[in-house]
């Protein structure tokens, strides 16, 4: 667990967020390194999803932010919408909880996979299509070439989430924000998607921020774990330590609440 020599791709420092007069985030600090998965745990309303959305500039209207979100030295919070649009989907991308609503039902998979490729990377139609086939192969969709012409409803939930991951990875982003990526899936399918995420992270040197309430998922693939409560990170550390020797009282409570934990 030596990460002293790796560079942080994304560093969030002192991030605050106010929405409608309420303080949602009270100074969040996080750092992501390439090839590593950083898990963000916490209960409903603790601000874990908002931290992810802030990174992409996808906060609801009226949100006021403070602090810094630095992507390789550039503070994302100071960018204009136009500048942010250049980075979004290109350098930072996102996978959402429910693949049945995050994909467009009326557009073919091929369309959804190549749109941003052509926009961001200025690829021509043919090159974009080739890249799309590669991507679908990478996320292990059978018959990728044929799959391009099909629509989301023709795929199972696990396949759809693989496709959503392929879309997120299309422009070779440096940072992937995954917000409860396996919560809507069956456990057997979840196992496959977790393996896929871990493999992609290792092979592509991707920095992943994994937002999940499931400490089992956390334990399976995260390298570092941060626990959030009431808009603050209460504990950060290597996975093994946080899950077996929690330092903070709240982390201990979360772990003790798991079934079968107290008897083990």
């Amino acid at each position: 667990m030596t990460d002293g020599d790796t560079v942080d791709v994304l560093r969030i420092s002192g991030l605050t967020l106010d929405l409608g007069g309420a303080r949602i985030l009270g100074g969040v600090d996080l750092a992501l390194q390439p090839g590593r998965i950083h898990g963000l745990a916490g209960e409903s309303g603790s601000g874990k999803t908002m931290t992810g959305l802030a990174t992409l500039g996808l906060l609801p209207p009226g949100a006021r932010t403070g602090g810094r979100i630095e992507l390789e030295g550039t503070d994302l919070l100071t960018l204009t919408p136009r500048q942010l649009a250049v980075l979004r989907g290109r350098s930072v991308s996102m996978v959402f909880q429910d693949p049945s609503t995050s994909l467009h039902p009326m557009l073919s998979i091929g369309h959804q996979l190549t749109d941003h490729l052509r926009h961001h990377l200025k690829l021509n139609r043919k090159a974009a299509k080739e890249r799309a086939v590669d991507l679908l192969t990478q996320v292990r969709i059978p018959n990728p070439r044929e799959a391009l012409g099909r629509y989301p409803h023709q795929f199972s939930g696990g396949m759809r989430q693989r496709i959503a991951i392929a879309i997120a990875l299309a422009c070779e982003p440096k940072v992937l924000i995954a917000d409860e990526p396996t919560t809507a899936l069956d456990v057997t399918v979840q196992a496959g998607v977790l393996r896929l995420l871990r493999g992609l992270c290792d092979d592509l040197g991707l920095a992943v921020l994994l937002v999940t309430h499931d400490l089992g998922v956390m334990s399976a693939i995260a390298d570092e774990v941060s626990v959030m409560r009431h808009g603050l990170v209460v504990e950060t550390g290597p996975r093994g330590r946080v899950l077996t020797e929690p330092q903070h009282e709240y982390t201990r409570q979360l772990l003790d609440a798991l079934p079968g934990r107290s008897t083990v």
């Binding site: 456990v187 979840q190 196992a191 977790l194 393996r195 871990r198 400490l215 089992g216 956390m218 334990s219 399976a220 693939i221 996975r239 093994g240 330590r241 946080v242 899950l243 077996t244 772990l255 798991l258 934990r261």
Partner: peptide, 8 residues
Amino acid sequence: PDGAGVLP
């Protein structure tokens, strides 16, 4: 959730 990092 044992912190061992074992993929299911």
